[in-house]
């Protein structure tokens, strides 16, 4: 089973306070020493309906860590905040898998750092070739972030998956 360790946010110690500094409370570390638990995976795809009992055919067994994580030494979990990426299926409180070993390319969903703030967006480029970070929300409530030379910009990792509890 997938287990996570909540990271304590490193608190500042008075008198210096961290006003304005982002927290790391959103990060969680995959617990990779957890024993693999292989659960049966049914071969037939289940549309949002009731699976036919006749199709209870086990194709293979699935371990969730194995399914979600390619490169364990480079993988971190984050918790999604806000609605900017709902169109690609990232809802608030979802856990997203971030893999730092992947090389980001245009079209990837990435965890980026813009002027010290973390944001999850789709990586894009404008006509001039400059980086833009695109939201995925058809309401138009979120605008693309155009990265300029004066900005402090870094791609922290590539978002390779997500998971959610109901």
């Amino acid at each position: 089973m997938l287990k996570t360790t909540k990271l304590k946010t490193s608190k500042s110690i008075p008198p210096i306070c961290l006003t304005g500094l982002g927290t790391i409370g959103v990060f969680q570390l995959p617990r990779l020493n957890a024993p693999a638990i292989n659960l049966p995976l049914y071969a037939s795809k289940v549309s949002a309906g009731f699976p036919s009992p006749a199709e209870e055919y086990v194709e293979k067994r699935l371990d969730t860590n194995d399914y979600l994580i390619d490169q364990k030494d480079a993988t971190f979990f984050i918790t999604i905040q806000g609605y900017s990426m709902v169109d690609v299926g990232l809802l608030p409180k979802d856990k997203a898998v971030v893999d730092r070993s992947k090389t980001p390319t245009v079209g990837d969903i990435v965890l980026a750092v813009v002027d010290g703030e973390f944001t999850v967006k789709t990586l894009g480029r404008n006509k001039e070739g400059a980086v833009r970070l695109l939201p995925a929300n058809s309401t138009g409530a979120y605008k693309p972030i155009e990265i300029t030379e004066e900005m402090n910009f870094e791609i922290w990792g590539v978002v390779t998956g997500s998971f959610r509890r109901f």
Binding site: S10, I13, L18
Partner: peptide, 16 residues
């Protein structure tokens, strides 16, 4: 010194 230069003090997080 911290006030003067904006040194940030963090408590340690050994699990991390």
């Amino acid at each position: 010194l911290a006030k003067q230069h904006g040194i940030i003090g963090l408590s340690s997080n050994y699990a991390l």
